Computed example of a mutant assay.
Amino acid sequence: MRYSGDWMVLADDRILEYIRSNESGRPKAMKDSGYVRYTRSYISQRCKKLVEHGLLRDLGNGVYTITERGERYLDGEIDTSEDRPDEIESHGNSGPSADENHEQV
């Protein structure tokens, strides 16, 4: 069973499943496949969100691959509702969190 966070939507699972089965993916290819039945723009937006949460890796030029963390989510091994993006990976473009447990340096 998968444990998705409140930030996740149904499209996220489809995107992760598609990329896992194809080793990588572009939003246009996902849309054209018929498996991810959303607009290319929406798929792209969700891919960026999945990157923020450490489930996908952005290789550039619109190509995404699944991370080990993404694999573990699909396998039901992690609960993404407990994640805080700053605990997963530093992205450089994320500002301070509103979360009271966020440590300031």
Rank of each mutant, 00 (worst) to 15 (best):
M1T: 10
E100D: 10
N93T: 00
K31F: 12
R40M: 11
R2C: 01
T39D: 14
M8D: 01
S81T: 03
E52C: 07
E71R: 14
Q104D: 13
E52F: 06
D13E: 15
M8I: 07
E100L: 10
E87A: 12
L56T: 08
M30D: 08
G95L: 10
H102V: 09
Y64P: 04
D6I: 09
A29C: 02
Y38S: 07
V105C: 05
S94K: 13
I88A: 07
V36D: 07
C47A: 13
T39K: 12
R2G: 04
D83N: 07
R14F: 09
G60F: 01
E100G: 01
N101M: 01
L59R: 14
V9T: 09
P96Y: 12
D99M: 10
R37H: 04
G95K: 11
D99Q: 13
N93G: 00
S33F: 09
S81D: 15
G5D: 05
C47E: 08
T67V: 08
Y73F: 15
K48E: 12
S97V: 02
K28Q: 12
Y73Q: 04
Y3H: 11
R2S: 03
Y3R: 11
P96K: 11
D32Y: 08
E103N: 08
R84Q: 13
G62W: 03
T39Q: 09
D75H: 09
G25A: 07
G5S: 11
S97C: 15
E82F: 00
N22D: 02
R26M: 11
L55G: 05
L16T: 01
R84F: 13
I15N: 00
S81L: 02
E82T: 12
Y64R: 06
E100N: 03
H102I: 02
I43H: 04
A11M: 11
S44K: 10
G60H: 03
R2E: 02
I19M: 03
N22V: 02
S44G: 15
C47Q: 05
I19W: 08
E23R: 13
R2L: 14
K31N: 15
V36H: 08
G95P: 02
D13I: 10
M1D: 09
K28G: 00
D99K: 14
L10E: 14
E52T: 14
E23S: 13
E89G: 01
R40I: 11
V36S: 08
I88G: 03
D83E: 15
L56I: 08
P85C: 10
D99F: 11
D13L: 10
N101A: 07
S24R: 14
Y3S: 07
C47H: 06
S81P: 02
D12R: 04
I43V: 14
A11E: 12
Y38M: 05
L56S: 01
P85S: 12
V63A: 00
D13K: 12
D32R: 12
R72M: 11
E103T: 12
E82G: 00
L56A: 02
R40L: 03
A98M: 13
D86E: 14
S90T: 04
S33G: 09
D13R: 09
N61C: 04
K31L: 08
G62C: 05
P27K: 05
R37E: 13
R20H: 07
D99R: 15
G62N: 10
R57P: 01
R46K: 05
E52H: 06
S33A: 09
Y38K: 12
